[in-house]
Design a protein around this nucleic acid. Structure first.
Lengths: 253, 253
DNA sequence: CGGCAATTTGACCGGTCTCAAAGTGTGTGG
DNA sequence: CCACACACTTTGAGACCGGTCAAATTGCCG
């Protein structure tokens, strides 16, 4: 999960125009000139160390963030102290969108490994979006897509077995890595087993047992954080999560 | 100039400016003049009958919709034929936002009872939003808030018991009704038991048993679709108490 | 080497699902 | 208006997945 783990000044100073992640990130669809205007408002901060907090639940919302390298988890805590992980974010993905509505971050964001991010001050972003039409659209598109993936995830939580959940999780990670040019077969799980369990609504023990079983069945090979998907085909059979195709049944209720 | 037709003229012709739901809906925060401009692009269609489809999964995205009265459920089906309900929408709530990103509706929307909606053609909405600043912001806010409630719902699905899920569901409905000026104590469940179960990730039988138990415990009174929340206080305690908040490993009585 | 956290493994328990069937309303057609 | 069919809801019995508790193992890092 960390192809650019060592951070150098070149990485930091690289502008949106030269960023490999352009096609996944906010600039997508903007003209070169507009990207430059966007670039001017982006702050590139020094990398976060593993465990470092990007923002905390309850903090005032100031900026959106785009992951440039590394990975981040977002979570919220109840007053009881329980923690619920909401997402793992990979390079090119935007976070903080859920804070626009309320003006406060409803969740905290923490680096899972050495991670660098681009900071996008929201007020400046919004005035720019007022002028640059494509930016506005892209922002809406990104939020819409996030609504979508949240919906899919809810379906996963609502009626899938532990096995299906973990398989889906692995395949989801794989395809996201692939999109970013990394291997979909072998990658690093930057999050702990207990993070995975929390995210998927499973006990740590269940996650651990499933990893063992998947490995025994020859589906995957795991060694600590490193994982290889040996049988992506059979893995996806495990989760009969369907692509929307079938016409809806007639309403009966 | 004339949304007036043969049916229910009073309801249909009511413009955004006079709509009771203004404060919950898209116009929120707009000036009277801007609301009028928004009003011009809104189509008020004739009411949907119970079971009627507003849009189907896979259809091209053309417009957002605001519920004006009644209620709607949205759901997606897998190619296996299973159906997963994603949301129940009440007056003042917007639907179709998840289609902006992909250009296709990822889910279907069906009326749960006689329901009227306002149609907001998205292209026209977007050009208007380009001029009217507050509209753009309000759109983002609404989407952001939806992301938020999705997150909360995921937490519910990920680690709450059946009891907590149903209690939360009822309280959520109650507060939404209250916001709209209806009673929070007594309202109608326009969706079937099996819809509720599907939505909450529970078997119908479990939902039914819980209704019975809640009633025996004096928390609610149900008769078919009609429900009264007798002890909202105790209900909300159910939402927090089911899972021990701070796991006292070495607790000493 | 030693302490601590994360992971794994085992045993057991319980909540929820599944299967089955009875009960209750609702709508339709005669 | 009644009879019947069908869908929805409720109730019961039993099975099973996954959670909890407990303990062993491994890896990490001073």
């Amino acid at each position: 999960m960390e192809p650019t783990s060592s951070f150098n000044i070149r990485t930091l100073s690289r502008a949106c125009n030269e960023c490999q992640l352009q096609d996944l990130c906010l600039p997508l669809g903007l003209s070169r000139g507009d990207i430059e205007r966007l670039d001017k408002i982006v702050n590139r901060r020094r990398p976060l160390q593993r465990g470092a907090t990007l923002f905390r639940q309850g903090e005032a919302f100031q900026a959106l963030y785009a992951v440039r390298s590394g990975s981040i988890k977002t979570y919220s805590s109840t007053n009881g102290g329980e923690e619920q992980i909401h997402a793992f974010l990979l390079p090119g993905e935007l976070l903080g969108l859920d804070a626009i509505g309320g003006g406060l971050h409803p969740e905290s964001a923490v680096a899972l490994e050495t991670t660098s991010v681009c900071e996008l001050p929201f007020d400046r972003l919004q005035s720019l979006a007022h002028e640059v039409d494509g930016l506005q659209r892209q922002l809406l598109r990104i939020m819409s897509r996030e609504l979508n993936s949240d919906e899919q995830f809810m379906r996963l939580l609502a009626n899938r077995s532990a096995e299906e959940r973990l398989a889906s999780f692995l395949l989801n990670l794989a395809s996201r890595f692939e999109l970013r040019g990394y291997s979909a077969q072998a990658f690093n799980l930057s999050m702990s087993r207990s993070d995975i369990g929390n995210y998927l609504g499973l006990a740590v023990e269940t996650v651990s047992r499933l990893f063992t079983r998947f490995q025994q069945d020859g589906l995957i090979a795991v060694e600590r954080k490193a994982i290889r998907l040996l049988e992506r085909e059979r893995l996806s059979e495990l989760c009969n999560l369907g692509v929307p195709v079938a016409p809806p049944k007639h309403y009966q209720g």
